[in-house]
Simulated assay, not measured.
Amino acid sequence: MTTPPTGRLIPVGAGHDLVLSRTYRAPVEDVWASVTESERTARWFGPWEGDAAPGNVIRVRMDHEDQTPWCDLRVDACEPPHRLALSMSDAAGDWHIELLLAHDAGQTELRLVFHLDDTAGLGETGPGWEYYLDMLTASRSGRPLPDFAEYYPSLKPYYDGLR
Rank of each mutant, 00 (worst) to 15 (best):
Q107I: 02
T137P: 00
R43G: 01
E109D: 05
R140V: 08
W32L: 11
F45G: 00
D118A: 12
G93L: 10
T108H: 03
T2W: 01
D17G: 02
L101V: 00
A33S: 15
S141F: 04
L155V: 07
Y132D: 01
G161Y: 08
V19M: 05
H103M: 01
L20Q: 09
S89R: 14
V35D: 05
K156I: 03
R61Y: 04
L122N: 01
V113R: 14
A91R: 13
L84I: 09
S139V: 12
G142C: 09
L86I: 12
E130M: 08
P157M: 08
E65H: 15
S34R: 07
P5W: 04
P47S: 13
R43K: 15
C78W: 03
L155K: 07
L100Q: 08
P81T: 07
D118N: 13
A26Q: 13
L112T: 10
S154V: 15
C78K: 13
V113I: 15
A77L: 11
T108E: 04
T125R: 13
P146E: 11
V57R: 14
P127Y: 03
L84T: 07
E109P: 01
P69V: 06
V57P: 00
G126V: 06
Y151V: 05
V12T: 11
L122Y: 08
W129R: 03
H64V: 10
L73D: 05
A105H: 14
R59M: 09
A138K: 03
D94C: 01
I97K: 03
R22E: 07
G106M: 10
P144R: 12
R163G: 14
T137G: 06
L100I: 13
A91I: 08
P4L: 10
D118E: 13
W44F: 10
P127G: 09
A149L: 10
V19L: 12
D90Q: 04
Q107D: 11
D104Y: 08
Y159D: 02
W44I: 07
S89L: 06
L9Q: 03
E39W: 06
L133M: 08
M1V: 11
H16T: 02
D160N: 11
I10W: 00
